[in-house]
């Protein structure tokens, strides 16, 4: 009964027809703090959240959320969680305040308590002025905030947020980050999904990277970065070297190439950052000392980790940084 885990999933599997969406997913989410499930489009993030939040039944596996089994103790689980889905779950024709009050009533708060709670939350999410307007007049950012506010009416222990910042502009995104950080300090557990590495890096204490329905890596941000090596060496080939030289280089490096961008003739290579290793790498790549035009060594980002873990072998093809080019990420996941 007493466990330090907010969520424990073992061997989660789910398929729709013959398409396997989740394939033996294990997750251990500690109590308190922010846990991020990071993955490209179609990785299975929403499916995982829906199973954890009791909305979808898994085909196989065991899940305990807030100490209760999601299969047999749904009611107990539901009393302790809240869900903010990928798409806003609000009544467009009701005002912000009415939406929140309705949530309060559905949680069986007395009318005046529901009213007070709604006012509190509007205040907290900077929506007091808009509270009496219908949701259909809200901007995307306001909608997201209200949606999150609606999930906090019941003061849940575990809060699921499915892609809370997708589609928000940088300012709204920063505001949402602040809210999530604030939530974590109140002792609740936040389980969020994201496609954005900087978001996971910024918010989460623990991260699980999912791809193609599997957890491909798990740990703290520091641990993940360590898996790929502490630094990255970016080399840019001279224009004179030509596309064949680039393709040869990528093939030669194999899995050590973390990124490859033929348009900019740039390859990122994992390194420990020592002078000896960087020198050895440059010698290996460019024995004749005429192919590399520039190089650059920098600290590994989660982007590198993510690409190293989720990229499929695609020699001499663009493998861009996921956060900068979501459409390319989408394309990649379609090959699954």
């Amino acid at each position: 009964m007493t466990t330090d885990l907010a969520i424990e999933a073992v061997g989660l599997a789910k398929s729709y027809g013959s398409t396997s969406v989740l394939d033996h997913v294990d997750l251990r989410v500690p109590r308190g703090g922010v846990f991020a499930l990071l993955g490209p489009n179609g990785a299975g993030k929403t499916t995982t959240v829906r199973i954890l939040a009791t909305l979808t039944r898994a085909d196989a596996g065991h899940v305990r959320v807030a100490g209760h089994d999601v299969g047999t103790q749904r009611r107990e689980v539901r009393r302790r969680i809240s869900l903010t889905g990928q798409y806003a779950a609000l009544d467009e024709a009701q005002t912000g305040e009415e939406n929140l009050r309705m949530m309060g009533r559905l949680l069986h708060l007395a009318p005046q308590l529901a009213r007070r709670r709604a006012a509190e939350l509007l205040e907290r999410f900077d929506l007091t002025a808009a509270g009496r307007r219908r949701v259909e007049t809200y901007s995307g950012g306001m909608r997201r905030r209200l949606d999150l506010a609606a999930s906090l009416v019941g003061e849940p222990e575990i809060i699921f947020l499915d892609e809370p910042t997708t589609g928000l502009d940088p300012r709204s995104r920063a505001a949402m980050w602040e809210i999530v950080t604030g939530l974590a300090t109140t002792g609740v557990t936040v389980f969020l999904t994201t496609q954005y590495l900087d978001e996971a890096d910024r918010l989460a204490d623990h991260i699980a990277v999912v791809d193609g329905g599997r957890v491909v890596a798990e740990g703290t941000t520091a641990q993940l970065k360590e898996q790929v090596g502490g630094r990255r060496l970016d080399v840019e080939l001279a224009a004179a070297a030509g596309p064949e030289a680039f393709a040869t280089l990528v093939r030669q490096l194999g899995p050590r190439a973390v990124t490859a961008d033929p348009a900019r003739r740039t390859v990122g290579i994992a390194t420990d950052g020592t002078a000896a290793h960087v020198r050895a790498l440059l010698d290996e790549i460019d024995a004749g000392r005429d192919r590399v035009a520039h190089f650059d060594v920098h600290t590994t980002t989660l982007d590198d980790v993510f690409l190293a873990l989720t990229a499929r072998p695609a020699p001499a093809e663009v493998r861009p940084i996921a956060t900068e080019n979501p459409s390319a990420t989408e394309k990649r996941s379609e090959h699954v």
């Binding site: 829906r50 889905g85 798409y87 949530m103």
Partner: peptide, 13 residues
């Protein structure tokens, strides 16, 4: 077909 139903369900309505 909108997300509203998921919220209601997760609230045990």
């Amino acid at each position: 077909t909108t997300g509203v139903i998921d919220r209601f369900r997760s609230m045990d309505v």
